[in-house]
Protein backbone atom coordinates (compact mmCIF):
# COMPACT_ATOMS: atom_id res chain seq x y z
CA UNK A 1 0.00 0.00 0.00
CA UNK A 2 1.20 3.45 -0.72
CA UNK A 3 1.49 5.74 2.22
CA UNK A 4 -0.25 8.55 0.37
CA UNK A 5 -2.66 10.47 2.51
CA UNK A 6 -6.34 10.12 1.81
CA UNK A 7 -7.83 13.47 0.93
CA UNK A 8 -11.46 14.52 0.79
CA UNK A 9 -13.22 17.08 -1.34
CA UNK A 10 -16.73 18.27 -2.04
CA UNK A 11 -18.19 17.24 -5.37
CA UNK A 12 -21.49 18.30 -6.90
CA UNK A 13 -23.20 15.50 -8.77
CA UNK A 14 -25.87 16.04 -11.36
CA UNK A 15 -27.51 12.68 -11.83
CA UNK A 16 -29.75 11.50 -14.66
CA UNK A 17 -33.06 10.12 -13.38
CA UNK A 18 -35.75 8.43 -15.40
CA UNK A 19 -38.25 5.66 -14.94
CA UNK A 20 -39.71 4.52 -18.24
CA UNK A 21 -42.79 3.13 -16.42
CA UNK A 22 -43.72 6.43 -14.79
CA UNK A 23 -41.95 9.37 -16.41
CA UNK A 24 -42.49 11.00 -19.77
CA UNK A 25 -39.25 12.91 -19.58
CA UNK A 26 -35.94 12.40 -17.79
CA UNK A 27 -34.76 14.90 -15.18
CA UNK A 28 -31.59 15.52 -13.19
CA UNK A 29 -31.20 15.26 -9.41
CA UNK A 30 -28.40 17.08 -7.60
CA UNK A 31 -26.38 15.59 -4.76
CA UNK A 32 -23.36 17.06 -3.03
CA UNK A 33 -21.01 14.62 -1.33
CA UNK A 34 -17.59 14.50 0.27
CA UNK A 35 -15.51 12.29 -1.96
CA UNK A 36 -12.30 10.68 -0.78
CA UNK A 37 -9.33 10.21 -3.07
CA UNK A 38 -9.65 6.45 -2.95
CA UNK A 39 -13.26 6.11 -4.10
CA UNK A 40 -14.29 4.84 -7.51
CA UNK A 41 -17.35 5.94 -9.49
CA UNK A 42 -19.29 2.85 -8.38
CA UNK A 43 -18.86 3.93 -4.74
CA UNK A 44 -20.69 7.12 -5.62
CA UNK A 45 -23.55 5.20 -7.23
CA UNK A 46 -23.79 3.03 -4.11
CA UNK A 47 -23.81 6.03 -1.82
CA UNK A 48 -26.58 7.70 -3.80
CA UNK A 49 -28.67 4.57 -3.39
CA UNK A 50 -27.79 3.85 0.22
CA UNK A 51 -27.72 7.40 1.62
CA UNK A 52 -30.06 9.39 -0.59
CA UNK A 53 -32.60 7.46 -2.61
CA UNK A 54 -33.19 3.71 -2.39
CA UNK A 55 -35.01 3.72 -5.72
CA UNK A 56 -31.90 4.82 -7.63
CA UNK A 57 -31.05 2.07 -10.12
CA UNK A 58 -27.86 0.93 -11.84
CA UNK A 59 -26.20 -2.31 -12.88
CA UNK A 60 -23.23 -3.82 -11.15
CA UNK A 61 -22.07 -7.23 -10.12
CA UNK A 62 -18.41 -8.16 -9.90
CA UNK A 63 -16.93 -4.84 -8.76
CA UNK A 64 -13.68 -6.02 -10.33
CA UNK A 65 -13.88 -4.92 -13.96
CA UNK A 66 -14.88 -8.38 -15.11
CA UNK A 67 -18.64 -8.58 -15.63
CA UNK A 68 -18.94 -5.44 -17.77
CA UNK A 69 -22.25 -4.44 -16.18
CA UNK A 70 -21.42 -1.10 -14.62
CA UNK A 71 -20.43 1.12 -17.55
CA UNK A 72 -22.01 4.60 -17.47
CA UNK A 73 -21.10 8.06 -18.73
CA UNK A 74 -19.29 10.57 -16.56
CA UNK A 75 -19.41 14.06 -18.08
CA UNK A 76 -20.11 12.45 -21.43
CA UNK A 77 -17.23 10.01 -21.21
CA UNK A 78 -17.97 6.27 -21.22
CA UNK A 79 -16.50 4.80 -18.07
CA UNK A 80 -16.46 1.49 -16.21
CA UNK A 81 -17.79 2.64 -12.84
CA UNK A 82 -16.04 0.06 -10.68
CA UNK A 83 -12.66 0.70 -12.25
CA UNK A 84 -12.61 4.46 -12.69
CA UNK A 85 -11.28 6.41 -9.77
CA UNK A 86 -13.10 9.56 -8.74
CA UNK A 87 -9.74 11.30 -8.35
CA UNK A 88 -9.12 10.91 -12.08
CA UNK A 89 -12.60 12.15 -12.91
CA UNK A 90 -12.08 15.23 -10.73
CA UNK A 91 -8.72 15.80 -12.38
CA UNK A 92 -10.41 15.61 -15.81
CA UNK A 93 -13.59 17.53 -15.14
CA UNK A 94 -13.33 19.44 -11.87
CA UNK A 95 -15.84 19.27 -9.04
CA UNK A 96 -19.03 19.36 -11.09
CA UNK A 97 -19.70 15.85 -12.22
CA UNK A 98 -22.59 14.62 -14.35
CA UNK A 99 -23.60 10.97 -14.18
CA UNK A 100 -25.66 9.57 -17.04
CA UNK A 101 -26.42 6.16 -18.53
CA UNK A 102 -24.32 5.05 -21.52
CA UNK A 103 -27.14 6.11 -23.81
CA UNK A 104 -29.82 8.50 -22.59
CA UNK A 105 -31.94 7.50 -25.60
CA UNK A 106 -31.99 3.91 -24.40
CA UNK A 107 -32.56 4.62 -20.71
CA UNK A 108 -34.97 2.30 -18.90
CA UNK A 109 -34.40 3.32 -15.31
CA UNK A 110 -31.76 5.81 -14.20
CA UNK A 111 -28.37 4.31 -15.21
CA UNK A 112 -29.91 1.15 -16.65
CA UNK A 113 -30.28 1.03 -20.41
CA UNK A 114 -31.81 -1.34 -22.87
CA UNK A 115 -28.64 -2.84 -24.37
CA UNK A 116 -30.52 -4.95 -26.95
CA UNK A 117 -28.95 -3.18 -29.94
CA UNK A 118 -25.51 -3.94 -28.56
CA UNK A 119 -26.27 -7.64 -28.08
CA UNK A 120 -27.97 -7.93 -31.48
CA UNK A 121 -24.89 -6.53 -33.17
CA UNK A 122 -22.67 -8.81 -31.15
CA UNK A 123 -24.72 -11.87 -32.05
CA UNK A 124 -24.74 -11.01 -35.74
CA UNK A 125 -20.97 -11.27 -36.25
CA UNK A 126 -20.85 -15.01 -35.44
CA UNK A 127 -18.98 -14.42 -32.17
CA UNK A 128 -17.84 -17.99 -31.70
CA UNK A 129 -15.39 -20.45 -33.16
CA UNK A 130 -16.54 -22.13 -36.35
CA UNK A 131 -14.35 -25.18 -36.76
CA UNK A 132 -14.63 -28.65 -38.02
CA UNK A 133 -13.28 -30.35 -34.95
CA UNK A 134 -13.97 -33.95 -34.10
CA UNK A 135 -16.35 -34.28 -31.16
CA UNK A 136 -14.00 -36.72 -29.46
CA UNK A 137 -10.57 -35.60 -30.66
CA UNK A 138 -7.62 -37.78 -29.77
CA UNK A 139 -5.41 -34.79 -28.97
CA UNK A 140 -5.73 -31.07 -28.30
CA UNK A 141 -6.03 -28.50 -31.05
CA UNK A 142 -2.70 -26.85 -30.56
CA UNK A 143 -2.34 -23.12 -31.03
CA UNK A 144 1.22 -21.86 -30.92
CA UNK A 145 2.04 -18.86 -28.71
CA UNK A 146 2.88 -16.97 -31.88
CA UNK A 147 -0.57 -17.63 -33.34
CA UNK A 148 -2.25 -16.80 -30.05
CA UNK A 149 -0.58 -13.41 -30.13
CA UNK A 150 -2.55 -12.63 -33.26
CA UNK A 151 -5.67 -12.20 -31.12
CA UNK A 152 -4.10 -9.01 -29.85
CA UNK A 153 -6.04 -8.94 -26.58
CA UNK A 154 -9.35 -9.04 -28.47
CA UNK A 155 -10.37 -11.93 -26.21
CA UNK A 156 -10.24 -9.68 -23.15
CA UNK A 157 -13.42 -7.79 -24.11
CA UNK A 158 -15.98 -7.82 -21.29
CA UNK A 159 -18.82 -6.50 -23.49
CA UNK A 160 -19.30 -3.49 -21.27
CA UNK A 161 -20.54 -1.39 -24.20
CA UNK A 162 -18.43 1.65 -23.30
CA UNK A 163 -16.99 1.86 -26.80
CA UNK A 164 -20.26 1.09 -28.57
CA UNK A 165 -22.11 3.97 -26.93
CA UNK A 166 -19.15 6.32 -27.35
CA UNK A 167 -19.04 5.70 -31.09
CA UNK A 168 -20.41 8.64 -33.10
CA UNK A 169 -21.26 6.39 -36.04
CA UNK A 170 -23.41 4.08 -33.89
CA UNK A 171 -25.24 7.22 -32.80
CA UNK A 172 -26.02 8.27 -36.38
CA UNK A 173 -26.34 4.96 -38.23
CA UNK A 174 -28.28 2.23 -36.43
CA UNK A 175 -27.10 -0.40 -38.94
CA UNK A 176 -23.43 0.05 -38.01
CA UNK A 177 -22.06 -2.94 -36.07
CA UNK A 178 -20.03 -0.76 -33.74
CA UNK A 179 -16.54 -1.22 -32.28
CA UNK A 180 -17.32 -4.01 -29.78
CA UNK A 181 -18.90 -6.25 -32.42
CA UNK A 182 -15.86 -5.70 -34.62
CA UNK A 183 -13.61 -6.71 -31.74
CA UNK A 184 -15.61 -9.93 -31.41
CA UNK A 185 -15.42 -10.52 -35.16
CA UNK A 186 -11.68 -9.97 -35.09
CA UNK A 187 -11.32 -12.26 -32.08
CA UNK A 188 -12.54 -15.24 -34.11
CA UNK A 189 -11.37 -14.15 -37.54
CA UNK A 190 -7.78 -14.06 -36.22
CA UNK A 191 -8.04 -17.47 -34.56
CA UNK A 192 -6.10 -20.04 -36.59
CA UNK A 193 -8.67 -22.74 -35.74
CA UNK A 194 -11.58 -20.79 -37.19
CA UNK A 195 -12.84 -21.66 -40.66
CA UNK A 196 -15.92 -19.47 -41.01
CA UNK A 197 -16.22 -18.08 -44.52
CA UNK A 198 -19.04 -15.63 -43.94
CA UNK A 199 -17.99 -13.47 -41.00
CA UNK A 200 -15.40 -11.36 -42.78
CA UNK A 201 -17.73 -10.81 -45.73
CA UNK A 202 -20.48 -9.78 -43.34
CA UNK A 203 -18.39 -7.20 -41.48
CA UNK A 204 -17.30 -5.77 -44.82
CA UNK A 205 -20.84 -5.02 -46.02
CA UNK A 206 -21.55 -1.40 -46.79
CA UNK A 207 -23.62 0.65 -44.32
CA UNK A 208 -23.01 -1.73 -41.43
CA UNK A 209 -19.41 -2.79 -41.84
CA UNK A 210 -15.90 -1.68 -41.03
CA UNK A 211 -15.73 0.78 -43.93
CA UNK A 212 -18.19 3.08 -42.20
CA UNK A 213 -15.90 3.60 -39.20
CA UNK A 214 -15.01 7.30 -39.06
CA UNK A 215 -11.58 6.67 -37.50
CA UNK A 216 -12.28 8.99 -34.59
CA UNK A 217 -10.45 6.83 -31.99
CA UNK A 218 -13.17 7.35 -29.36
CA UNK A 219 -13.37 3.58 -28.88
CA UNK A 220 -9.63 3.28 -28.30
CA UNK A 221 -9.76 6.06 -25.77
CA UNK A 222 -12.65 4.74 -23.63
CA UNK A 223 -12.02 1.00 -23.51
CA UNK A 224 -11.37 0.04 -19.87
CA UNK A 225 -9.53 -3.08 -20.99
CA UNK A 226 -7.15 -1.26 -23.38
CA UNK A 227 -8.36 -3.37 -26.26
CA UNK A 228 -8.03 -0.65 -28.90
CA UNK A 229 -11.03 -1.57 -31.09
CA UNK A 230 -10.01 0.68 -34.00
CA UNK A 231 -6.77 -1.24 -34.29
CA UNK A 232 -8.87 -4.41 -34.76
CA UNK A 233 -11.03 -2.61 -37.29
CA UNK A 234 -7.92 -1.64 -39.23
CA UNK A 235 -6.80 -5.27 -39.15
CA UNK A 236 -10.21 -6.38 -40.44
CA UNK A 237 -9.77 -3.95 -43.35
CA UNK A 238 -6.36 -5.43 -44.09
CA UNK A 239 -7.67 -9.01 -43.79
CA UNK A 240 -10.40 -8.22 -46.29
CA UNK A 241 -7.77 -7.29 -48.88
CA UNK A 242 -5.44 -10.15 -47.97
CA UNK A 243 -8.16 -12.80 -48.11
CA UNK A 244 -9.69 -11.32 -51.24
CA UNK A 245 -13.14 -10.60 -49.82
CA UNK A 246 -12.85 -6.82 -50.25
CA UNK A 247 -15.44 -5.77 -52.77
CA UNK A 248 -14.70 -3.25 -55.45
CA UNK A 249 -16.63 -0.28 -54.07
CA UNK A 250 -16.11 3.36 -53.24
CA UNK A 251 -14.58 2.59 -49.82
CA UNK A 252 -12.02 0.04 -50.99
CA UNK A 253 -11.14 2.09 -54.07
CA UNK A 254 -10.60 5.03 -51.74
CA UNK A 255 -8.01 3.03 -49.77
CA UNK A 256 -6.30 1.61 -52.86
CA UNK A 257 -6.49 4.99 -54.59
CA UNK A 258 -3.95 6.37 -52.14
CA UNK A 259 -1.41 3.85 -53.38
CA UNK A 260 -1.97 4.76 -57.03
CA UNK A 261 -1.69 8.43 -56.25
CA UNK A 262 1.48 8.06 -54.18
CA UNK A 263 3.02 5.90 -56.89
CA UNK A 264 2.34 8.58 -59.48
CA UNK A 265 3.06 11.75 -57.49
CA UNK A 266 4.49 10.85 -54.10
CA UNK A 267 1.78 13.07 -52.74
CA UNK A 268 -1.95 12.68 -53.03
CA UNK A 269 -3.87 13.90 -56.06
CA UNK A 270 -7.06 14.85 -54.20
CA UNK A 271 -9.26 15.28 -57.25
CA UNK A 272 -7.88 12.14 -58.86
CA UNK A 273 -8.59 10.17 -55.70
CA UNK A 274 -12.24 11.21 -55.59
CA UNK A 275 -12.61 10.43 -59.29
CA UNK A 276 -10.99 7.00 -58.90
CA UNK A 277 -13.10 6.19 -55.82
CA UNK A 278 -16.44 7.42 -57.10
CA UNK A 279 -16.24 6.61 -60.82
CA UNK A 280 -19.36 7.95 -62.54
CA UNK A 281 -20.82 9.00 -59.18
CA UNK A 282 -18.37 11.86 -59.30
CA UNK A 283 -21.22 14.02 -60.62
CA UNK A 284 -22.70 14.40 -57.15
CA UNK A 285 -19.54 16.21 -56.04
CA UNK A 286 -19.68 18.77 -58.83
CA UNK A 287 -21.52 21.58 -56.98
CA UNK A 288 -19.06 21.55 -54.07
CA UNK A 289 -16.12 21.15 -56.47
CA UNK A 290 -17.27 24.21 -58.43
CA UNK A 291 -17.56 26.30 -55.28
CA UNK A 292 -14.07 25.16 -54.28
CA UNK A 293 -12.73 25.84 -57.76
CA UNK A 294 -13.98 29.41 -57.62
CA UNK A 295 -12.00 29.91 -54.41
CA UNK A 296 -8.79 28.48 -55.84
CA UNK A 297 -9.06 25.25 -53.89
CA UNK A 298 -8.75 22.78 -56.76
CA UNK A 299 -5.41 21.90 -58.29
CA UNK A 300 -5.66 20.06 -61.62
CA UNK A 301 -3.62 16.83 -61.99
CA UNK A 302 -1.04 18.58 -64.15
CA UNK A 303 -0.55 21.31 -61.53
CA UNK A 304 0.38 19.01 -58.66
CA UNK A 305 3.85 19.43 -57.24
CA UNK A 306 5.27 15.93 -57.10
CA UNK A 307 7.53 14.82 -54.26
CA UNK A 308 11.24 15.32 -54.83
CA UNK A 309 13.05 12.01 -55.22
CA UNK A 310 9.88 10.34 -56.43
CA UNK A 311 12.04 7.47 -57.69
CA UNK A 312 12.83 6.53 -54.08
CA UNK A 313 9.15 6.36 -53.24
CA UNK A 314 8.42 4.24 -56.29
CA UNK A 315 11.28 1.92 -55.45
CA UNK A 316 9.93 1.43 -51.92
CA UNK A 317 6.44 0.77 -53.20
CA UNK A 318 7.89 -1.96 -55.40
CA UNK A 319 9.95 -3.56 -52.67
CA UNK A 320 7.70 -3.11 -49.64
CA UNK A 321 4.16 -3.72 -50.90
CA UNK A 322 2.56 -6.67 -49.15
CA UNK A 323 -0.92 -6.64 -50.72
CA UNK A 324 -2.43 -6.98 -54.18
CA UNK A 325 -5.97 -5.85 -55.03
Amino acid sequence: MSAEKITTQKVNFKVFRFNADEDYLPYYENYTMDITSEEVVLDVLNRIKWDHDGSFSYRRSCRHGICGACAIKVNGRSTLACKESMATMIEYFGNDITLEPLSTKRAVKDMIIDKADFWDKHASVTPYLVADIDECPSCENLVSPHDAEELNEADLCIQCGACHYACPVVEVNSDFFGPAAFVAAYRFESDVRDSDGERLINVNEEKQGVWDCAKCYECAEVCPKDINPIEKITKLHQMAFKKGVAKNNVATRHAVGFLHSIKRNGVLDEGGLVLYSEGLHIVKHIPVALAMFRKGKIVPPWGITKSDKLDEIQKLIKSSSTVKF
Partner: peptide
Protein backbone atom coordinates in the same frame (compact mmCIF):
# COMPACT_ATOMS: atom_id res chain seq x y z
CA UNK B 1 10.01 18.45 -50.27
CA UNK B 2 11.00 14.77 -50.55
CA UNK B 3 8.16 13.63 -48.31
CA UNK B 4 5.35 11.43 -49.59
CA UNK B 5 1.71 11.43 -48.47
CA UNK B 6 1.26 9.84 -45.04
CA UNK B 7 -1.53 7.59 -46.32
CA UNK B 8 -4.16 9.45 -44.30
CA UNK B 9 -5.01 6.21 -42.41
CA UNK B 10 -6.54 4.85 -45.63
CA UNK B 11 -3.36 3.41 -47.12
CA UNK B 12 -2.98 1.93 -43.63
CA UNK B 13 -6.22 -0.01 -44.18
CA UNK B 14 -4.77 -1.48 -47.34
CA UNK B 15 -1.09 -2.11 -46.71
CA UNK B 16 0.15 -1.58 -43.18
CA UNK B 17 3.80 -2.38 -43.80
CA UNK B 18 4.13 -0.19 -46.87
CA UNK B 19 2.61 2.75 -45.01
CA UNK B 20 5.11 2.26 -42.18
CA UNK B 21 8.00 2.27 -44.64
CA UNK B 22 6.80 5.43 -46.41
CA UNK B 23 6.22 7.31 -43.17
CA UNK B 24 9.54 6.17 -41.74
CA UNK B 25 11.18 7.57 -44.86
Amino acid sequence: TEASCCGASHLQDYDDFLSLVLNAR
